[in-house]
Design a protein around this nucleic acid. Structure first.
Lengths: 234, 234
DNA sequence: GCAAAAGTGTTCTCGTTACACCCATGC
DNA sequence: GCATGGGTGTAACGAGAACACTTTTGC
């Protein structure tokens, strides 16, 4: 008991650094990619790393991640969700430091390419991820698993596509995330059965001569449906 | 860039306290309950609070939670999983302090009742949870949602029951967690279809004259099945 | 006219739901 | 002997999986 009480005195607490690392997913040319950069401080200066930062005194963890994302990509209002905390005592040889990993989904077409390169950041295909510092490769593995889990239960895959997208594109996204082949008829059927896609009068002819119709996801409608108990499962 | 580099110097980081709070679920007499206690330090000394602690320099977040659980319940090897991080800047008026909430599932029959009372801790039925300090009520809401989610996809409900349990008991647990009525025939049929329960030659006669057969969950078999892609859904 | 991707329907299977009665036992 | 909770089977339904051909158009 004494021990507990003592431990709970605010001013006597050990200094534990709090960082956040972002697993940034992008979908480009049919391939799922991740944004990494060359770390600028010791230990491990110059090695590949997830983008991240320490959390400032006057910001929440999520704010810290958004700050970093803005810095590296020039983008705001990105899909961002907490993955989990990495807190092994020895995870960072530089100091006692825990990291709250968060994964982000961005529309690769939108991001500010200059900004990305300016920071020495680079997109890697999922299969070509180099060795990263500390436990960052583990974070990626965990994030990917979460992404698979989450995309089947929530319509977050759309965050990786442009606002207007074709059904074949969406399918290839799901195939890339889950590393599977999907039946195009069944995929389309199920997808459309939700009545959550708004068909546009435009076609994307970049991938075929016939062209594929563009759609938008109806986020408004989805929110209402979700509130009344609707379950998205793809 | 400068700003970023500066921020990343280890020694210049602000002191952010790191705590963990445990949402401890128990299932007792057909009712889902939570363990809370009277906070012993300011601010909010004397008010109801989740059990928790600051994280020590030489322990991981999960170790900290296990330490607290041992202290309050006398139990080890408890099911424990991270919920999420609560890091709003103003969440704790006493200091800049983030908390990693974790939820635990314990077998109420097993715990050391003396130890619980010694610490001023108490079990509350889910419907009777008092107002707690800081954001702890929010944590509970989130934990409950997670518990609902998780129990339907993973066989963790068993962590709330004694090792030997009856099928009606398990059903009432699921009914308590999800606040629903389940069809007993369908529940039993689906449950047994997994072939993951070991039927014992004992009956529990505490709730009926006829008595209900006791079962054990086959965790070994489940692990193997899970590795080969089996999906538990109840 | 042909290559290449987009788009469309049907059948079969299997899992989910709904539903009602007998069983064992303590009192 | 009766009240109480435990245990069983079947039929109807709906969602998911498997599967092949036509359409459009740029070259």
């Amino acid at each position: 008991m004494k021990a507990l009480e003592n431990r709970r005195i605010y001013t006597e607490q050990p200094k534990i650094l709090v960082a956040t690392d972002c697993i940034v997913f992008g979908f480009d040319e049919g391939i799922l990619k991740l944004l990494v950069f060359r770390r600028r401080i010791d230990p491990c200066k110059g090695e590949w790393s997830l983008i991240g930062s320490f959390v400032d005194a006057e910001e929440s963890v999520s704010d810290a991640a958004r700050r970093v994302l803005l810095q590296f990509t020039g983008l705001e209002n990105i899909f961002l969700e907490e993955l989990r905390v990495y807190s092994n005592v020895e995870r960072d040889p530089g100091a006692r430091c825990i990291s709250i990993a968060q994964y982000a989904l961005i529309r690769v077409n939108d991001y500010d390419r200059e900004q990305v390169e300016l920071h020495g950041a680079k997109w890697f295909a999922l299969d070509d991820i180099p060795e990263l510092v500390l436990d960052h490769n583990v974070m990626i593995t965990d994030a990917l698993e979460r992404l698979r889990q989450k995309t089947t239960h929530k319509p977050i895959g759309f965050e990786l596509l442009p606002e207007k997208f074709t059904i074949p594109k969406l399918q290839s996204l799901y195939e890339a995330i889950h590393r599977t082949q999907l039946d195009d008829r069944n995929f389309r059927k199920k997808l459309l059965s939700f009545n959550l896609l708004i068909k546009l009068n435009e076609k994307d002819k970049s991938t075929s001569k016939k062209g594929a119709f563009l759609y938008k996801f109806d986020f408004e409608k989805y929110k209402k449906l979700e509130e009344s108990g609707f379950n998205f499962v793809l």
